[in-house]
Design a protein around this nucleic acid. Structure first.
Length: 488
RNA sequence: GGCCCCAUAGUCUAGCGGUUAGGACGUCGGCCUCUCACGCCGAAAACUCGGGUUCAAGUCCCGAUGGGGUCACCA
């Protein structure tokens, strides 16, 4: 059998990591079996439709490298791939169910529906439609009222009031539901648009989808779906419910937990391959030890039987660690270019663009193991690019020289004198010279180094000092030492 | 409230009847060391509880508890 999976987002906002993870697993399943992965836009809710979110859907998939075979901007043999363009199909399915007696028109107003529910709530009854319009005479009456008010009908499924249905979910096993608790749910809204429960089934069938992957919040509506498949004479695809991604407090991952969109992570300096790896490990594992997994390995090994059932809390610390690993293992040339781009993004406007790639190449070995997220790049290397350093006297003196400005000034002057005439401006020579000076002055080497560090870089935490000074060059370093001394 | 899902350290997980319960992030020590990292070494830290089944249960069954989901003309 051909494996065809799909990602079916509704264009209602920015892509959430939870949805993207579902997309990732669907993509992996298709790629593992050499099948197709397609993207279908589920825009049947006009009230929540945000047209601007469409490009973001494509962009988030592209960012992660989840290329699709059909749909979205691509078209394909089973198009259109946007539900609002497929309305006649849903109408036909609804008509068929109506004709078969598996569905009926319901003319009840939403006010009445609210009343019914309120009444049920008062009586501590589960909220559900009271099936008024199942009855022909009552339906006729409701219809007269509705038509007088200019309202149209919805189409409801006629749920059997007994029996049970079972889904064999590859992740959860058998899921059985008692039909007596299932409502007469809506299939087609009064605006002629279908509801998810009808639309996805019609489309998946038409698009020959073999495996449906979705979040396990859908489990409660499985019985409805099974009923619709059966009534429409459709052989259901494999349906697998993935565990959800939760926030740190165990509740649904939302904005108050921090970033929920893949773009926010991208903009903070997370790499797509790290995000791919991290997301791929939420709810799935290769074995008992492997954490860093390439895209190829994922494709080779991904199967549904290694998906876990329990929900997972989104662990940003681990993502950050993983990003650092990917950054360090990235091919040098690409990393240098990436660093340069982030510098151009984050350096003050006074620094001319483009940033000198050759310089970045020299800095790279100094900073690459210190950076976990790309937004940290500027903090470790801005002093190579900026002309005017900004730091306070307190920063300069630090702990060892606190209240001893004169001593620090003297040390700085001696350091300048020691370093200035060095025949060779190398980190070895610089270090030897300053170590000698520290001994001579009776200072701890580290104390002198941190003084020089702030003077030359403006920061207390930097890449290795002598390598940095070497790259900075004699003239600029000496200038900065003198400026620091002058400050005292 | 009805229905449903889930349950191994703080977190993500391995385990598919017999293991000193393994790995990773994080945390805490130590080494390295000019700061910070990286790297290396080490430590603390888990089978929710109660019944069964079995020679043997983290693993199978039942129940409880806890957490979560869902009950829309949203997906």
């Amino acid at each position: 059998m051909d494996v065809r999976t799909r990602y079916a987002p509704s264009p209602t906002g920015v892509p959430h990591v939870g949805n993207i993870r579902t997309a990732l697993f669907s993509w992996l399943l298709a790629r593992h079996f050499g099948g197709q992965f397609l993207v279908r836009v589920e825009d049947t809710d006009r009230t929540r439709y945000v047209p601007e979110s469409l490009p973001g859907i494509a962009e988030s998939l592209r960012w992660l490298g989840l290329e699709w075979d059909e749909g979205l901007d691509k078209g394909g043999p089973y198009g259109p791939y946007t539900q609002s363009e497929r309305l006649p199909l849903y109408r036909a399915a609804a008509d068929r169910l109506l004709a078969q007696g598996d569905a009926y028109e319901c003319w009840c107003s939403s006010e009445r529906l609210d009343q019914v529910r309120a009444e049920q709530a008062r009586n501590k009854q589960p909220p559900r439609y009271d099936r008024r319009c199942r009855d022909e005479t009552q339906r006729a009456e409701a219809r007269r009222e509705a038509e007088a008010e200019g309202r149209g009908p919805v189409v409801r499924f006629k749920t059997p009031d007994s029996g049970s249905v079972t889904l064999h979910d590859p992740i959860h096993g058998a899921l059985t539901f008692d039909l007596s608790t299932i409502d007469d749910f809506v299939l087609l809204k009064s605006d002629g648009f279908p509801v998810y429960h009808l639309a996805y089934i019609v489309d998946d069938d038409a698009m020959r989808i073999s495996h449906v992957l979705r979040g396990d919040e859908w489990i409660p509506s499985v019985p409805r779906h099974l009923l619709v498949y059966r009534a429409l004479g459709i052989d259901p695809p494999v349906i697998a419910h993935l565990p959800r991604i939760l926030g740190p407090d165990g509740a649904k991952l939302s904005k108050r937990h921090g970033a929920t969109s893949v773009f926010e992570y991208r903009d903070q300096g997370y790499l797509p391959e790290a995000m791919f790896n991290f997301l791929g490990l939420i709810g799935w594992s290769l074995d008992d030890r492997t954490e860093i997994i390439s895209r190829e390995q994922f494709i080779e090994h991904f199967t549904l039987d290694r998906v876990v059932k329990n929900p997972a809390i989104f662990n940003v610390e681990k993502l950050t660690w993983m990003n650092g690993v990917y950054l360090r293992e990235m091919p040098e040339g690409r990393r240098i270019e990436t660093f340069a781009e982030w510098l151009e993004r984050d350096l003050p406007a006074s620094v001319p663009r483009p940033v000198d790639r050759a310089l970045v190449a020299r800095i790279d070995p100094l900073i690459r193991e210190r950076i976990k997220v790309l937004s940290e790049v500027v903090g470790y290397s801005d002093f190579f690019f900026v002309d005017e350093l900004r730091y306070s006297t307190e920063d300069l003196l630090g702990k060892p020289f606190a209240g001893k400005a004169a001593e620090a000034k003297a040390a700085l002057d001696r350091a300048t004198a020691a370093v200035d005439p060095l025949p060779e401006w190398s980190h070895e020579a610089l270090e030897a010279s300053l170590r000698g000076l520290a001994a001579e002055l009776g200072l701890k080497a580290g104390d002198l180094f941190s003084l020089v560090r702030v003077a030359v870089t403006g920061r207390r935490v930097t890449p290795p000092l002598f390598e940095s000074i070497e790259i900075l060059g004699r003239e600029r370093s000496i200038d900065r030492l003198r400026a620091a001394s002058a400050m005292l």
